[in-house]
Design a binder for these strands. Sequence first.
RNA 1: GCCUCCUUGGCGCAAUAGGUAGCGCAUCCGCCUUGUAAGCGGAGGGCUGCGGGUUCGAGUCCCGCAGGAGGCUCCA
Length: 680
Amino acid sequence: MSDVVPPQSPSSEPASSLVTTTTPTTGAELFADRKDVVVVRVFAADDADGELWDLDRALPAGVRVEPVTIQEPDGLMVLRHSAAHVLAQAVQQVNPDAKLGIGPPVRDGFYYDFDTATPFTPEDLKALDKAMSRIIREGQTFRRRVVTEEEARAELAAEPYKLELIGIKGHAEGTEGADVEVGGAELTIYDNVRGAGRESETVVWKDLCRGPHLPSTRLIGQGVQLMRSAAAYWRGDQANASLQRVYGTAWPSKDELKAYLERLAEAERRDHRKIGVEQDLFSFHPSIGSGLPLIHPRGGVIKRVMEDYVRQRHIEEGFSYVGTPHITKEELFYTSGHLPYYGDTMFPAMEFHDDDHPDAPAQKYRLKAMNCPMHNLIYSSRGRSYRELPIRLFEFGTVYRYEKGGVVQGLTRVRGLTQDDSHSYVMPEQAADEVKHLLNFMLSVLRDFGLNDFYLELSTRDDSKPDKFVGSDEDWANATALLEKVGRESGLDLVPDPGGAAFYGPKISVQAKDALGRTWQMGTVQYDFNQPARFGLEYTAPDGSRQQPVMIHSAKFGSIERFMGVLIEHYAGAFPAWLAPVQVLAVPVAEAFDGYLKDVVAQLTARGIRAEVDLSDDRFAKKIRNASKDKVPFVLIAGGEDAAAGAVSFRYRDGRQENGVPVAEAVERIVAAVRDRVQV
RNA sequence: GCCUCCUUGGCGCAAUAGGUAGCGCAUCCGCCUUGUAAGCGGAGGGCUGCGGGUUCGAGUCCCGCAGGAGGCUCCA
């Protein structure tokens, strides 16, 4: 998930708040009666998007001006950017030697990069938090001042990074965050003024910045908190200096800050790594290596149910289940073209020497990093007729990728993963329908797992880096157009992702929102016109000619491990019954009812339900507590009253209770909930 | 891969300023048991991630390695 703020759409403020200036004025004057206005959006003659200006900045006559409040996205960005400035001021207060990098707003907050001799410690952050609140309470004025390049260079002589930004002004696009500093048409410096308007007013700090800012630091308020520090490369380039980045969060009010911190806490409670340990689902062991998960029995149930379901669905959708090896001679990946592009993220080759032929060159084998080449070999294992197409091959292909140490994380980024991978081989004229078929199939699979909020991302070639992609411009254009058309027809939002394509073709990926509103990349559909050529795939057309099929890659939920991690977080470990490791836990009120519940559980087991009786010598209340902590969907309780009535009592995870349900009805209800894959 | 921080029994934590490791849960063994989130008692379990170093003495300080977290870069 990206931390960078997505481009904001123009304000949704009603048009009635738009005013046109008749005389020179300022935003502050125009909206003097509106305390919630923090900046204005100014529309020049032919400017549809407008530009954000400080309230105090002089407005010429004849421009359209719209108020921007702190509650709307642009206002929030201004708040956060202003908070970043306060952070920078605080840092230089504490450490005058700190050199300033850039300080843009990001999702939920801001950061500022500094070059300091020593990294920030948690104690430093606390001290900075205090210094920031002092500056905020002081109510310093942000005062904008236009400078020439020469003036800027002179004033910022001690700030090497700012000088560099001045140098790249004009071609700053593509430099992360840099346009926040120098993106405007002219260079500006913001002075932080103490006691503005009084004779004693003093400039206490200044920074090169495009702005705009809140009128006063006081408006930043109580909703600011520094979160963490981390290293970041200057201008995002590994070849550059490593700076110390301080992240903070900023909200219009203390309450909103608290709500945000609560959301973070909830995300932490749901962290699949934590729940994975608590519920004994999976683990990682240093002696195996990072990124290579061990799935425990309870996690194994979830994995198996996922696999059984997806395998069945593929077969229903016309796929053939196949199997391929985990290692191969590396030549295969030269044929496919993967090795030259991704060799450094594949595990290194294993070399085998033939003892009987000591002079023969060693055979190099590679762990499989992708399944498609092997599926191609299945396709080409005999002649294919157009009558057979589409041919759809599917498997749970376990692949190994040498992810860099710093990116391996829980189940969501691993070095060994199992893809629900399929390849459809079609005639070119079938391609659009097949893409549509795969997309709909994928969405229906995700919906059955309880994800319902999607958008699509269209990953295309980066035309400026031709060496990263193979194939003709025409092929790319056709394939991209086809994916885009199908994507648009899906009715879902289609977000462009320039440069995100695989080397062999463009792709559509499904992004799903989870219960906390976070988006995860799920499956993909990739259009490949390269591998069929490289493998010489062909089919016999109706006229007897040999034609090349189009190959369409698709993974529905991507990797089983990753999707399991996403589901754990989506459900916070409280799985719907069909996925739950234990679906029913029967809890006797006292030992005397063990036998009664064993009989109920036997009836459930006979219907394929994963049910157990808690026969431990814990007392009743403790058993209820254990069942709650395990988040078992159905807890069935039986004591004297239930047994006498031939009934059981349901207890659900939210504490809801339903007493005296006849056993036969209880069984049917549970069976139905599992069958219908509903959450209970 | 790079930067910062972290690593104490299965899990969650504690151990003043270096003085020789404790608690809760879980586990095991007893006793107890009739209605909705912890019954009681006892026992076992740790070369404090690994390897060096400083010191009379290291969980505490220093170096290296591994693993983890966050971030940067990357992600077929």
